[in-house]
Design a protein around this nucleic acid. Structure first.
Length: 306
RNA sequence: GGCUUGGUAGCUCAGUUGGUAGAGCAGUGGACUGAAAAUCCUCGUGUCGGCAGUUCAAUUCUGCCCCGAGCCA
């Protein structure tokens, strides 16, 4: 009794509805694998199930932190293990549903390297380096410090170069050594992994268009306004996610309503593409080209019986 | 009807003093271990509106035609 079902798919592929359908037929516990739905009050733009659905059909890992809090894969992973254990202790099989593929990857590979947390002062130090030096120089520094790690990072990838410096300063070791240190709990679950890779991109794009329009109709702009009023000067990590970012640009008069919509749709399509790239290369999952209710349901039924 | 102006990649446009063209966006494929819905990389042949003329050579010059915008009647 250590079964775990995973259902992964790109945005707008209908996985959430499908998980709810499965939950009605089997004794499952839904655990969301979504880096933005974890935030409270980010509802419409994340396509989060509404409150009455969440009440009837609880989703773990949804609405677990405040908008101004910082989250991370590490926090996600330890939370996830707790949720899985809790479900198992209740005799339920957890079903992990979502599209945050790095989170899934972390779960499948049994966790992250054993690293020190990065302190605020270290973060600041790294920021100052980036403010005072050219990216090129910083990359050269990393290349001399740790050629192995630099090889895997593109010189333009500011984000990852910064992260490697943070790792270096917090662990007092070069990143490639620090990252190779694991205190992993070996993945000891009995997994059923199901992926949705839509074979009809046009259909997916149409769904994205419909869903974006309906988000706006449902009041996405008001949701962003409310968040801005509630947290006027705070940095909200989820504000840089799709939908929220573009509505903010619209509210600042940087773009008009029409281009706001088309930018949201484009960003969503790009997200779906990246998610599909992950799915093509994550192994050990059974791939479906669309949500095939009958086939997936019988697959789940067999798995639960076994 | 006359004058002005534009018609170049799916979209917005640049360019060729005549040698068949290139950016941004979109799209595609990919990378990705603590903000990942983030961050980053790869990929550009299109009757240069149509027909004819000049020319060794026209998308570029000339003429006519078609379509759009503006102004004048």
């Amino acid at each position: 009794m250590n079964k775990v079902i995973s259902l992964l798919g790109p945005t707008a592929s209908g996985k959430t509805e499908f998980a709810i359908f499965l939950k009605k037929n089997f004794d499952l516990e839904i655990i969301s694998i979504d880096s933005v739905m974890i935030y409270k009050y980010f509802n419409i733009g994340t396509a989060k199930p509404n409150e009455s659905i969440l009440k009837k059909i609880p989703h773990k890992m949804v609405n677990i932190i405040e908008p101004f809090e910082k989250f991370s894969v590490a926090k996600f992973y330890s939370n996830l293990l707790d949720c899985i254990n809790e479900a198992h202790s209740k005799g339920k099989v957890p079903i992990l549903v979502g599209g945050s593929m790095m989170y899934f990857k972390t779960f499948f590979s049994g966790g992250l390297s054993d690293l020190e947390n990065v302190s605020e002062s270290t973060k600041k130090k790294v920021q100052e380096i980036f403010a005072s030096k050219d990216l090129e120089n910083i990359y050269d520094f990393l290349k001399k410090l740790d050629p192995l790690i630099a090889k895997n990072i593109h010189p333009n990838d500011k984000y990852r170069i910064a992260r490697m410096l943070e790792i270096y300063f917090s662990n007092n070791e070069i990143p490639s050594i620090a990252l190779s240190r694991y205190s992993r709990n070996v993945q000891c679950f009995n997994n059923l992994n199901l992926s949705i890779i839509p074979n009809d991109r046009t259909l997916l794009h149409n769904n994205i268009e419909k869903r974006t329009n309906s988000m706006i109709d449902m009041g996405l702009i008001d949701e962003v306004l409310d968040l801005r009023n509630k947290y006027p000067k705070q940095f909200l990590p989820a504000m840089s996610s799709i939908g929220y970012k573009q509505v903010n640009q619209y509210l600042l008069n940087d773009i008009d309503l029409l281009s706001m919509k088309s930018k949201i749709m484009a960003a969503t399509r790009q997200l779906a593409k990246r998610q599909i790239t992950w799915l093509r290369h994550l192994d050990a999952t059974t791939v479906y080209t669309s949500i095939d209710y009958d086939n997936i349901e019988s697959r789940v039924r067999d798995f639960l019986k076994s």
